[in-house]
Design a protein around this nucleic acid. Sequence first.
DNA 1: TTGATTATATAGACTGATCTGTATAACTTT
DNA 2: AAAGTTATACAGATCAGTCTATATAATCAA
Lengths: 205, 205
Amino acid sequence: MEKKTEKKGASKRSKAPQNRPKHQQALVQAAAVLFRKQGYAATGTAEILKRSGAPRGSLYHYFPEGKEAIGAAALEAASKVASRTFRDLAANTESPADFVRAYATLLAGWMEKSDFTDGCPVATTVLETVPGSDIITPVARTSFQHWQRTIQDMLMSHGWHGGRARATATLVLSAFEGALIMARVEQSASPIHDTAEELAALLAG
Amino acid sequence: MEKKTEKKGASKRSKAPQNRPKHQQALVQAAAVLFRKQGYAATGTAEILKRSGAPRGSLYHYFPEGKEAIGAAALEAASKVASRTFRDLAANTESPADFVRAYATLLAGWMEKSDFTDGCPVATTVLETVPGSDIITPVARTSFQHWQRTIQDMLMSHGWHGGRARATATLVLSAFEGALIMARVEQSASPIHDTAEELAALLAG
DNA sequence: TTGATTATATAGACTGATCTGTATAACTTT
DNA sequence: AAAGTTATACAGATCAGTCTATATAATCAA
């Protein structure tokens, strides 16, 4: 079982530190996209490998706990992106009503661009793995709590008080979560805009 | 696939173990539970067979198009149950605000009873198969549209006007859909009640 | 500096289990 | 017998995960 021994290595022409965790990030990124679009169980490790360009060995090197660990990492990555979006949007809008409208526009554009094959990166995986997976469940929980808190803070910075802000933030999150599902099924951004307009009415009144 | 197997009708109403579509209904029922709890792709036909007690041959006899056809049938069955619940609830509540509170109580009890392993029977399958599956996609779309329309009618029967009733019904549906996901992740009925209370405030004001 | 040693990372063949779907035989009921 | 249903064996594909070998980096030895 001899293999070609390519001695071509050893050339350290570039000191670019590109070969450290070369494939780790690619794996998470690929998994995030695939899980989001087609679900957790329907996505095989082979597909993740192919899309990321990583070999099988790397997957189990970086994620000894296997597929579930990749799922958790993908959720974590997606969660951070969304949290940052929430914060940025909160900083650049003038009222809660503005905030939900702006976020709706963002989501709608995103869904349209993907031909309605995208959706919430957390929801898809969650419905297949929570509470079954001990690795994914806590990550998902933290993610939702973080989002909820970010929206709650946004409301409070506009004068809302604790208890009501908490419940309202939950409604906002629930509504967008559901609107993404409806948009996907109806292949239309309308549910997102309808939901946001009604939310805006509540937040303004 | 809907106009083929129902010619015998209710000619025989004996409770006796008559094996007409004996296994057909059991298959759909088993699939509905499993898809709802653990997802579409994660549920193998073997598991459906085992839970339903049907042999493999029956599955492909009643559903020649296989797993996707069972998925569509399960969605259809679940959709009808929910529609009926909506109508019954609408008939027995005195205002839209009452309606959402009553439905929240129903959902919360259901989730608690299942230890938060249940959820919306449509959402779970949808996120894995729409728009990929040509068999499931139209069923899911019809289901959501039917629900939306039922809630819209409820609102209009309380004096709401067309345009606003449409958008508000979408919000209500989205919010409950999302609240179920959050409840599952947080292993708590609070997101459902919080969401419903905020919705009630909007509907009352 | 050079050489040896260990740790990290890449690479893909391989495994046994499970997947969906098919084929065909054997009932059951009319 | 004929049609409708049940029953099981089977097939090819794919599944997640393990294995061994190799390559590159970092650390230590002289």
